[in-house]
Structures are given as structure tokens and as C-alpha cells.
Design a protein around this nucleic acid. Structure first.
Length: 499
RNA sequence: UCCGGUGUAGCUCAAUGGUAGAGCGGGUGACUGUUAAUCACUAGGUUGUAGGUUCGAGCCCUACCGCCGGAGCCA
């Protein structure tokens, strides 16, 4: 008799007869043999159907990709199969026969895949990313739970802005206007006065009119908030936090990272402490000769890489004209397509680096750091880089001014290495009632709108602070992806709500 | 919002202004160890939409729409 099994446990069933339940992810056939590749959510397994098993053979011959099946057969160890084990099929039941599954083993375009995201999730690449996301989120929760942080769910329907009023999504809330939350921070500040250490983790919404590889309109953010914490405490917390996240993924998902083609070396190099720079340091660095030389060096390298890629492209083209077999041409063309992509990236580098350098060298104190400035700083470091003490005018009203220099605030951004940019933003909060009120007025906001928030400074105000980490941006970095949209099951961008 | 690119078969892409094609996927057949299997045959198109130039437009021009990338802004 057979026992039910999943593919990840096949090694424990060698020699036994088991029943798998899953989907046909691929099929190859010989005259009297069919190789079914079955996917069951825990792994892939090759199932061998021989002509002697007539009923199963007839069923197998007609199965199309992504048909759902029950497969019964003996588990055999065989080095020729993926995973090292295969099933010698004795009974094959088709649950539902799929026809013309749209996603083929050949390359597809982004738009097509995103329009079929509900099906694309079954493919190995999205599956790997979603598993890493699972690990990351679990690591996030473990980290704060183990340190005594109390989870506090903050509202998604809110009355006003947490960040920028122009990026709010309005919703009709009975007789009045409401907005989707951009952050739980103000509510967390309230909760941390009750529990000392709190965090929230949930979706946030920003109606930014931007279609870049770093933007989603709906994304997930985890935000810790700690009473009696000052800026240094936040920096220490953030280092331990990021380190724990990276460790967890390296421990549990090296197979998935490898499947994604992620170079593990840069992740393994993440060690404490991280680099700390003040905004002043960054400005100096951006304007420095070292920066100019470094960028020029990068430009030379990018140019050389581009020329090498062009040469390889020419080589492939000549191979293509000589290739007789269609499949060989196909392979060459696929190779050329990837090469063309890297070529575009390199061309952009060659084109943008001088612009970025010019922007950096003429950077004026007081401006917020632009994407290109962040990229330059973060690309130069193997470890994540903290940037602290930004000009107050470029930052939100609730950030506490530095006692040493009232022109700057006690904030911290964390830039991921390899040019991935900002993944954390946070600050020590202004805890003095009068100072906070005037900061609200100075930003052109109404203190009445923040009366409950101001109460927190009336009744036992203490130094406190926190930060927010964007899950999708962090995943983009850890997975080494080009675009955030792949890090969430159903991405919401300015141009897409379907599926 | 601005700048650049792009839109051809279900998918990925070809096609000097002159007869719209290939591979994959689908269908039919061959093959007992395939790894994106291979081989043969086969079906599949109002070239994003609307105008214009031309003897003739997939190709040139204008507008609009979709998508991609970049800038600004941000996690």
C-alpha cells in the first residue's frame, strides 16, 4: 500500500511506494517512456512512466504542463533525477487537465509575466523569492519578540499625514475624508509610553508618482519604537537587527539565493559594526578628490566592461550566422538577450556616472541626499552605511534637533551596500512640547491636527526614538534583484493593480 | 510630470519603403533515460489605435493609448 508523501521527504521513503500530489511542471517523452516533472510546493521530482504500465502511460502521454495529479509509485534513488530520487509510477490520476498553460520554459517579458503573476508565482524564481521573504519576516518578528518588544498594530485608516501630504491615498470614510496609513510611527510613539519597547509590522501606502525600480505604492514596513532610546541606541539596535536578518536568510535560504544567482560573498561580508557617517561627512566625501578619482575609476571599469560586452556580442553574432541547428541559434539568441541587458546597464553607468559625479561634486549643504548620491556612498562600502545628522529643513517635524547643532536633527538612514540605497529611515523624536509645537508651525502644519500627539509630550515625556525598515527594499538587496516588484506576491505600482 | 525607448502569431523576436518569417508553446506522428530532450509534418496574423505622406507603409510623419528604462521624490 502507498503512503502519502511530499517531495522534500522522499529520501526517507526510498524503496517504499508513496503517493505524491502536485502539478506537472514539465514533460519529456520517449517512445515507451514518459518523464514527468512534478512540483508539489516542497520541491521537484521526476516521475518515470513506462509503457508497460498501460493506464498510467496513456494518462501521462496526454498531460500538459500544470495539470494537477496524484502520482503513486516506488521511490528510487537515481543520480540522473533532480533531487537524487525519482518515482517509478504505477498509478497516475489526473485531477484536472490543464491546456495551453501560458507561461512556457522560454523567456518572457516583464509585462506578460506581471499580467500572469497569479500563475507566475508557481515558477521557481518567484517561489525562491517568496521563501526568502518568509524567512526575513520571521526573522524580523523573532528579533523583536526575543528582545521584549510588544507588537502593536497601528491603524491603516488615518486622519492625517505621517510623512508627506502629497503622497496620501484618500478614501471615503462615511461623512469625512480618511487616508491610508503611510507609517505607524505616531501611534507607536504613544504605545511605547505604555510598553517601553514596541513595534508594528504592516502594509503602508504612498501615492508617489514614481515608476522606478525602488517604488511600490503598497509596501510592508516594520517599525520599532523605544522609550528612553537616544540616537546611539537606535544605531546599535539597527545593526543587530539587520545582521540578524541577513544571518537568518543565509542560514535558511542559501539554496534559494543560489537559484537566484545571488553572489553570496557580499552578504557574508556583512559584519558589525557598520560604517557611520554624518551628513557633513557625506557632503565632504561627495565633494572630495577621492570621490572624483573613485568615480573616474568606476567609469573606466564600466567602459572597459562595456567594450568587452560589445566584443562578446559581435562574437556571438558571428557564431549565430554559422549556427545550423535551430536550437543552437535559439541558445545563442537567449545568451545575446542577457548580454544585451547587461550592456544596457553598462551603457547607463557610462552615461550616468559623469552626471552623478557632477551632482556630487557640486552638492550643497542643506539638500536631501538624492538617489545618485546615496548610490555613490553605498557603492563604495562593503558594509551598510549609516548617515546621521541631516539638515533639519530637509526632514520631518518630529525629529529631534541636535543639542550640539540646532541646524541638524538626530536622525539616521541606513544605506544598503552594493548601491541598493536606503532601507532604513529613523530618528530620535522631539520630546519637548514647545519645541515640537514650533516645529509643526514652522513646517506649515496645524498644531490642532496633532493634539493627541502633543499630549504625549504633556504627560511624562521621555527621550525616545525608532526607525522603519522597508521589507521589499531589504529583500531586493538580499536577493540581489534589479526591481522591488519581484519581492511581493502581488505588487502594486502606479501602473499596475492587476492581478 | 519631464526625457528616452518600445509596440509584428499565445510567448520571445526577425523582416533596405516592394510577396509578413523563425524558434518556443499547441496539434499529429517517430524514438525506452530525457534534463529548456530531439526529429518530421501541421495549424496559427486587420503588424497597439486613428489620421497622413507615397505608385506602394510593419518600416516615414502627427496624435493618442499601453508597456519598459531614467530623472524628481521616497522605504
Amino acid at each position: 500500500m502507498s503512503t502519502n508523501a511530499t517531495i522534500d521527504t522522499l529520501h526517507a521513503h526510498a524503496g517504499e511506494t508513496v503517493t505524491l500530489s502536485g502539478w506537472v511542471s514539465g514533460k519529456r517523452s520517449g517512445g515507451k517512456i514518459v518523464f514527468l516533472q512534478v512540483r508539489d510546493g516542497t520541491g521537484l521530482c521526476q516521475c518515470i512512466v513506462e509503457a508497460g504500465v498501460e493506464e498510467a502511460f496513456a494518462t501521462a502521454s496526454q498531460l500538459e504542463r500544470e495539470s494537477s495529479v496524484y502520482v503513486t509509485g516506488e521511490v528510487r534513488e537515481d543520480a540522473r533525477s533532480v533531487g537524487g530520487y525519482e518515482i517509478a509510477v504505477s498509478v497516475l490520476t489526473c485531477i484536472q487537465a490543464a491546456h495551453d498553460y501560458p507561461i512556457t520554459p522560454k523567456p518572457h517579458g516583464v509585462d506578460f509575466l506581471m499580467s500572469h503573476r497569479h500563475l507566475w508565482l508557481r515558477s521557481s524564481r518567484p517561489a525562491a523569492i517568496m521563501r526568502i521573504r518568509h524567512t526575513l519576516i520571521k526573522a524580523v518578528r523573532n528579533f523583536f519578540d526575543e528582545r521584549g518588544f510588544i507588537l502593536t498594530d497601528t491603524p491603516i485608516l488615518t486622519q492625517g499625514a505621517g510623512e508627506d501630504e502629497q503622497t496620501l491615498f484618500p478614501v471615503a470614510y462615511f461623512e469625512q475624508d480618511a487616508y491610508l496609513a503611510q507609517t505607524g510611527q505616531l501611534y507607536l510613539e504613544s504605545a511605547c509610553m505604555a510598553h517601553r519597547k514596541v513595534y508594528c509590522f504592516g502594509p503602508t501606502f504612498r501615492a508617489e508618482k514614481s515608476t522606478t525600480r525602488r517604488h511600490l505604492t503598497e509596501f510592508w514596513m516594520v517599525e520599532p519604537e523605544v522609550a528612553f532610546a537616544e540616537l546611539v541606541d537606535l544605531l546599535v539596535l539597527a545593526v543587530d537587527f539587520i545582521w540578524a536578518c541577513v544571518e537568518a536568510v543565509l542560514e535558511h535560504n542559501s539554496a534559494e539565493l543560489e537559484a537566484l544567482g545571488r553572489d553570496l560573498a557580499p552578504l557574508q561580508k556583512i559584519q558589525k559594526p557598520f560604517v557611520r557617517m554624518t551628513y557633513d561627512d557625506v557632503v565632504d566625501s561627495l565633494r572630495s578628490d577621492e570621490m572624483r578619482q573613485w568615480v573616474e575609476q568606476q567609469l573606466v571599469e564600466a567602459t572597459q566592461a562595456r567594450d568587452a560586452a560589445l566584443k562578446e556580442m559581435a562574437q556571438l553574432e558571428s557564431e549565430l550566422t554559422q549556427a545550423r541547428k535551430a536550437w543552437k541559434q535559439d541558445k545563442l539568441q537567449a545568451k545575446m538577450a542577457t548580454l544585451r541587458e547587461t550592456l544596457v546597464e553598462l551603457e547607463r553607468d557610462v552615461e550616468n556616472l559623469p552626471k552623478h559625479l557632477k551632482l556630487a561634486q557640486s552638492f550643497e549643504w542643506g539638500k536631501d541626499l538624492g538617489g545618485s548620491d546615496e548610490t555613490l556612498i553605498a557603492r563604495r562600502s562593503e558594509r551598510p552605511v549609516f548617515v546621521t545628522h541631516y539638515p533639519a529643513e530637509a526632514k520631518a517635524f518630529y525629529m529631534k534637533r541636535s543639542p550640539d547643532n540646532p541646524k541638524v536633527v538626530l536622525n539616521m538612514d541606513l544605506l544598503a551596500p552594493e548601491g541598493y540605497g536606503e532601507i532604513i529611515g529613523g530618528s530620535q523624536r522631539e520630546d519637548d512640547l514647545d519645541t515640537l509645537e514650533s516645529a509643526i508651525v514652522a513646517k506649515g502644519l496645524q498644531p490642532e491636527d496633532y493634539s493627541w500627539y502633543l499630549d504625549l509630550r504633556r504627560y511624562g515625556s521621555v527621550p525616545h526614538g525608532g526607525f522603519g525598515l522597508g521589507i521589499e527594499r531589504t529583500l531586493t538587496w538580499i536577493c540581489g534583484l534589479k526591481h522591488v516588484r519581484e519581492t511581493i506576491a502581488f505588487p502594486r505600482t502606479m501602473g499596475r493593480m492587476y492581478p
